[in-house]
Computed example of a mutant assay.
Amino acid sequence: MLYEKITKDYMTALKNKDNFRAEVLSTLRSAIKYREIELREKGKELDDGEVLEVIKKELKKRREAIEMYKQGGRLDLAEKEEKELKILEEYVLAELSDEELRIKIKEIIEKVGATNIKDMGKVMKEAMSGLKGLAEGERIRKIVEELLKG
């Protein structure tokens, strides 16, 4: 699991006395734990897709902070945020290519037994949960629509 890799890397950073990296990963682990508690209250479990969502939110926060610091002339703080951004980016999986996404969606279509565009809702529900963090929803929708119409 992705969370286990983050925890392992955090422990390694502590052992290597890489305080900056350890601090960034500690903050990330905290955000993930908070999300896990939210999910548990809803009767759900934390999976890699949820961890990726947390990481993406943290990336977005850093990007916004960098922009604000640059506008405010605080290049020192912007530089710190950029270093944090680079560490967090290590944990984001690259999105699937269109070809890989098509293959995954074809598998989902077969799994749910979809035959035409009327089954789009079933396919989308399965695809959005199964491909969470691997592709944007709009890309998934376009390919599902294309495959079901064809």
Rank of each mutant, 00 (worst) to 15 (best):
T27C: 06
M124I: 13
R141L: 11
R74N: 15
R40N: 13
E90Y: 02
M1Y: 13
I143N: 01
A127W: 06
D9N: 15
E41F: 13
N16K: 14
E41C: 07
G73S: 04
N19R: 11
I6R: 01
R21W: 02
N16Y: 12
K122L: 12
D48I: 07
T115W: 13
S30N: 07
K42P: 02
I66F: 04
T27M: 09
I6G: 01
V123F: 11
K104H: 06
I66Q: 04
A13S: 10
N116M: 08
M68T: 15
A13W: 07
V51P: 00
E99P: 03
E138N: 06
Y3K: 13
V92W: 05
T12Q: 11
A135E: 02
E67P: 02
K8T: 14
K83Q: 08
L77N: 08
Y69G: 06
E41M: 05
E107K: 03
E126S: 10
I87N: 07
M120S: 12
D18E: 10
K122N: 12
N116V: 08
K86C: 03
D9C: 02
G121Y: 10
E41Q: 08
E4T: 13
K118W: 14
R29H: 05
G121P: 01
N116Y: 11
I6V: 04
Y69S: 08
S129L: 09
E4Q: 13
E110Q: 09
R35Q: 07
K80P: 00
E38K: 09
E138C: 04
T12M: 03
A13H: 03
Q71K: 10
K83V: 06
I66W: 03
L28Y: 01
E84D: 05
V144Y: 02
K15G: 05
K149Q: 13
L39E: 03
K15Q: 15
K70W: 05
E81C: 05
R21Q: 13
Y34F: 13
I117Q: 06
E45K: 14
